[in-house]
Design a protein around this nucleic acid. Structure first.
Lengths: 198, 198, 198, 198
DNA sequence: TCGTAAACGAGACGGTACGTCATGTCTTCTG
DNA sequence: CAGAAGACATGACGTACCGTCTCGTTTACGA
């Protein structure tokens, strides 16, 4: 999606100015207008860029939106601290995630990207590879440390545990009754680690 | 969303034939064409119905899609059995849910509805009220029985536990690495009930 | 070109309002803007009409321009008076023609139509059938009266004579050095009738 | 239009290779594609030349087309023979002209140039100066010889007579009902010289 | 003989117009 | 009079070219 790496001639003279203008315009519009109004024409106009420039470098609106998201959260280093207290570390991470998802600006972005993911496998794959997998790997690594230290059940599939931690946040954000609040993160960590059975 | 009960004229002579034809055409198209091709014109043509008839009775494409989903899964009585074995009951329920989400036909439908939910608060509200809340309430009722019987921690917020059970499925279905498989349901129930700590 | 008489269904519900607006807008623009700026979009905007309405009823810009010309010169009854004096009748007719061709508004129209004729055989055919042939026939009929009366050489091909009268005007209008003036019409009639040889 | 003689810097290092390639590509395309497809980009691609090279040396598409026409008919020495028989000399000349206009390749070229003349006064002026005036002067000189010899009426404006000879050809070529045939040339000469009156 | 300045090929840029498609409204005709 | 048919105004779509503007590369002086 970005940079059209595959095939033929690598485009040598792409204008960084135009690329940045498009991604910024997209980010701005995502928060300003309802998603169906985020048209290619609107992006081109807002960016002061020709439509052809957009069509030349991006295959679809979804790709632009995703690139724009990458640009804004690109530097995010996905790794959890290890304070020794697993529950505290997970809570901190999930609270931060919940906070971000609940913020109006990131929220609009995530909603937009999700719409694209649901309709475009290419975007879905990119999202998984570039954002989701790194995030989940980071969580998984932190869990593995604790498991190796004997603090987690040995028979546990860590990938499942990761889902049990992050899934509820996604579910609540996407459909969940009521808004996504930070306390929810703590409660999820509590259930996932200690279980529900008395 | 349907029947537009509020305001103006109560629609006295609505044609049941047209209504059914529209919902069926929508259901058929959802599985046949990519979602952006599910246009109002395509639905009207497929249903053999005038566009105005659609605009008269539904406020948006999302509303049609949602009504169509309601129609197909309307009879589904959302309640869990109580065999006495909570884990078994939850596993059975989650496996059935996972199965349905993974099926191609229901999957396409859910994807479509999710796209609409993300862009249309009206659809989101309807979805919550008519499908989600009943489902979650059913799970919650089953959990409450066990909690009353002293089998679950008293300090537990059952709504959170419901999310911890269903959220991972949603997360996996929506973004998760790899497909949603039935074993995953068992693993989730295991973690949510027993916890991860050794 | 107009009314798409041939084929399939006669379009019964065409909006006369839209049709007239398009033709008027075209006529106005032809005099106001250079011809390459006479775009379909400009016509649609000026006429307050959707582009699709234009594409539905006209196959090309040329067709619109020609229809617009027809509309404005539609009522023109192409027939020459017969005062008994052939030379006077022809002079009067050619002077009127020259006058019209030299006028700024008709001139712009004729230039536009000529451009289209040169690039679109359909328009060329229409132009011949609807405007040119009637005009030339009218001249020819007047000549035939004189020939029957023995006032013109019997061995003369009247079609050629018609061209010898009208052709010089066209040539002068199109390319001719200097503007087309009314005296020129008299001179042409003089040469065509009396010849150049002493 | 060509060589941009006036003003500022005389272009000293213009590539003759590029110039020829452009004119040849234009000539080839004129016969191969409909005129609206004769784009600058198509010419540049066909000629293996950068667009900027074209814009550097020609101000418009019309200028290129005209230069291309000049190049192909440049050597044509516009002068009529004087065999003593005016009618024969004129007939020969007009037949040759008619022949050329009727040929498919010259025809396409003339049509293209005419389109440009109608829309671009610069091209029109160039066409008059470089091609039309020399041709008409040649005819006029031949007529003057005969007039001086007393073979033509003294009161005759020779410029008008020239138009009466060439105009009908132009008219027939441009609009005329039916194709332009060589016999037509003879008939025109006959009328113009002898007149129509018995 | 070798800079050096121009013209060159290539092609990206900000744009306009194209012709098509879908929208949501409106009008006309039919059952 | 509800509903089908479909014309209407609007405006986004993706494509083709426009004319301008760099890029590096030849090419032909003139120092």
């Amino acid at each position: 999606m970005p940079e059209r790496e595959p095939d033929s001639t690598p485009p040598r003279r792409r204008s960084e100015r135009a690329r940045t203008a498009v991604l910024n315009a997209t980010a701005a519009l995502i928060e300003e207008v309802p998603y169906p109004r985020l048209t290619i024409e609107a992006i081109a106009a807002r960016a002061g860029v020709g439509k052809q420039t957009i069509y030349r470098w991006w295959p679809s609106r979804g790709a632009i939106v995703f690139d724009s998201l990458l640009e804004r959260s690109g530097g995010a280093d996905a790794s959890l601290p290890d304070s020794g207290d697993l529950q505290a570390d997970l809570s901190a991470f999930l609270r931060a995630s919940a906070d971000e998802m609940a913020s109006p600006s990131t929220g609009a972005f995530l909603r937009a990207v999700t719409v694209e993911i649901l309709q475009d496998d290419g975007v879905a794959q990119q999202y998984r590879d570039r954002l989701l997998t790194p995030q989940r790997s980071a969580v998984r690594r932190r869990l593995a440390v604790s498991q190796d230290a004997g603090m987690l059940r040995d028979d546990l599939d860590l990938d499942v545990l990761v889902e049990c931690l992050l899934g509820p946040l996604v579910g609540r954000w996407l459909l969940g009754p009521g808004p996504l609040e930070v306390d929810f993160a703590d409660a999820v960590v509590d259930v996932a680690l200690r279980g529900a059975i008395r």
